[in-house]
Simulated assay, not measured.
Amino acid sequence: MLYISEYESSIQKIMAEGNQSIVTEFILAGLTDKPELHVPLFLLFLGIYLFTVLGNLGMIILIILSSHLHTPMYFFLSSLSFIDLCYSTIITPKMLVNFVAKKNVISYQECMTQLYFFIAFVISECHMLATMAYDRYVAICNPLLYNVTMSYQVCSWMVGGVYGMGFIGAAVHTLCMLRVVFCNTNIINHYFCDLFPLMEIACTSTFINEVVLLCLSAFNIFIPTLTILGSYIFIIASILRIKSTEGRFKAFSTCSSHFSAVAVFFGSLAFMYLQPFSVSSKDKGKVSSVFYTTVVPMLNPMIYSLRNRDVKVALNKLFQKKKFHV
């Protein structure tokens, strides 16, 4: 009720100042304004999206069907695949429409809904990656206590907490955006409804939004990053104590895929959100957004499957079962 009354009072103030209309729909400017690039980019991102859907959905189904993958590590991995699939689906189809449509219109309600779910799943991914790092820390540094520490109940609570932080954080950002009034211009210089592009076209003050953005972004990026770095410091120290070269290599290979995924995802997020609003670059912001909205969800299944022996074994067993039944 407080946000609704603030919104109505802001509208009345703006309307009193002049003949200005309140925006009820937005136009997404898209990734590029060069028409000759629309078809190649459409085909490129369509291929990326199809690969993302097949990769992440395939990973989820494989983990469900393979009993020997019913471990905490793959439980978290299936959750990560679900998150990647969701926020890629929230963003990419609308971006593809923008390449073929003359005017890519999105209503105010659709824009706020897209903003909410996008933020929810991005925050969830940040904390899910931290959870996976902690899982690897327990597995390598305390292997004898692994089954007790990472029990099914504990893992379920951890995943629930990850989604809880995502949806609560998204609710805070969206409520702050709902109190902002948009008028005159309705062109969002982006390919989806994101926080910075929306604040750029606001008629009212976005100071509160900027403070909330910096605070929550710092929390949702720094806390998982510190958790991941702390986990890997202990992991590396533990690995260096392994006398066997083969044992060291196996331990490093288990963690290298996760660390590479973390570097790409958190690097692009930090570049986009951990800088003052006034110095953010529009074009650089779009490029950075492409990484964590389309490229990372596509890469994660490859990073975690093609280099993973357990997943390869599960795939071979699944194909052998199909051949046997045929």
Rank of each mutant, 00 (worst) to 15 (best):
Q109A: 06
N104G: 13
V212Y: 01
K282A: 10
A139G: 01
H38F: 01
P224K: 08
V290N: 02
L65D: 10
N189P: 04
I83M: 12
Y3V: 15
N316F: 05
A101K: 14
F167W: 13
Q20C: 10
K103N: 09
A171K: 02
Y146N: 10
L96E: 06
I106G: 08
I27M: 09
C255E: 09
K284S: 06
S151V: 04
S88M: 02
T206S: 08
V326N: 10
A29T: 03
L77T: 12
I140C: 04
L46T: 14
G18V: 09
I208W: 04
L96I: 04
N186M: 04
L57I: 11
L57T: 14
M128N: 11
R248A: 00
C141Q: 04
G30Q: 08
L274F: 07
S78L: 01
S79K: 09
F192D: 06
I14Q: 05
T185S: 14
I48T: 12
S151M: 03
L77G: 05
F249R: 15
S5D: 09
H258G: 13
S9L: 10
S244Q: 03
F252K: 01
F182I: 01
T89R: 05
L43I: 14
I106K: 06
F234V: 02
M128L: 14
Q12R: 13
P93L: 08
C255D: 09
S88F: 13
G55E: 04
K243A: 09
Q275L: 12
V295F: 15
N209C: 15
R241P: 01
A263V: 15
G58D: 07
K34Y: 09
P276Y: 01
F118K: 04
T131V: 07
E36G: 07
I188Y: 12
H190T: 02
L28P: 04
S256Y: 03
L44G: 04
T71C: 06
C141F: 00
K94S: 11
N142A: 06
F266I: 00
F121L: 12
F99R: 08
Y146M: 07
N19K: 15
I236E: 12
K286E: 02
H127V: 11
S9H: 14
M59A: 10
S217R: 03
G55R: 13
S66Y: 00
V100A: 05
L178I: 07
D194S: 09
C111E: 03
M73I: 06
G169K: 05
C86Y: 06
A314V: 13
I235D: 03
C183Q: 10
S67W: 00
F291D: 01
V162M: 14
C215K: 14
P301F: 10
V105E: 06
Y137N: 11
V172E: 07
E6H: 14
N308D: 13
I233K: 05
F249C: 14
F121I: 02
T293D: 11
G267K: 11
Y191N: 03
P143F: 00
S280M: 05
F45G: 12
V53L: 15
G230L: 12
F75E: 07
K13I: 09
F167R: 02
L43Q: 02
Q153M: 09
N186Q: 08
L37S: 12
H173F: 15
A237H: 15
I187C: 04
S256A: 11
H190G: 00
S278K: 08
Y273W: 15
V296W: 00
G285R: 04
